[in-house]
Amino acid sequence: METFQQKNIRKRKLKNSILHIVLASIIVFSIIMLLLLLYQVFSEGLSRLSWSFITSMPSRFPDRAGIASALAGSIWTIGLTIIFSVPLGVGTALYLEEYANQKSWWTKLLQLNIANLAGVPSIVYGMLGLAVFVKFLHFNRSILAGALTLTLLILPVIIVASQEAIKSVPSPLKEGSYALGVSKWQTIVGVIVPYAAPGILTGSILAVSRAMGEAAPLIMIGAAGYISFLPKSPLDSFTVLPIQIFNWTSRPQAEFAEIAAAGIIVLLVLLLSMNAIAIVLRNKYQNRMD
């Protein structure tokens, strides 16, 4: 006969096993969803993927349609976004960590404000871009207006990631530099930034890849038109890959769903290679530091 205690232990262990199985199946659910999503995209799009798909302009006819102008638009916009957002973001993080008085109301306001900006929906940045860059500054529906909008969108993410990286620099390193009589800026350039570089890079690349997948803010600034030329300057009108995909997805014909999927494959490959670059760079820098 089982005693009361033995029975109780058996029951508790059984409950524990049940919870273990339930939680593990939640994880399995996430993995299956990821696999299903990738399977759906590749099974629809792979047959449409070809060199001519990448080099052709969009078209009413799905067989002739391609992503050339959208791809060029994405590269232009993201290139400019990187140029604007990384110096601004890292500079702000340096100010907050190295210059600002941590206890002053101004620093606290800055921190609170950045945290709140990070939670503002991307479409709201699109409205800001529409009102300020497109209408008020008369950049019209240009690459420049799009890149500035995306810059404001990802700035909080870059700032927070860079702050974390800068915080992780051991203070003996900084103090050693100051003890040699080196100025603050030279310490930043020579000690802090190199040490924090892996963290800054990873955070920035993640932020930029988020910008690359964004469609909503750019639709708000009017980048959803039919573009059949390759942009040549930052003031040209443009479209980007996610908007081109959106455009094709919203059409009822099955052929357009297929080329939308092919466009998604290109987008995902771009995003994955950016993340791969982030990992390689991080490892390279980290090895040097250790």
């Binding site: 999503l37 759906q40 997805t249 769903a257």
Partner: peptide, 16 residues
């Protein structure tokens, strides 16, 4: 999963 753009989830929702 978190890094996949929302447009791709939209496509997944509609077609799958």
């Amino acid at each position: 999963l978190a890094g996949i753009p929302s447009i791709v989830y939209g496509f997944f929702a509609l077609t799958f």
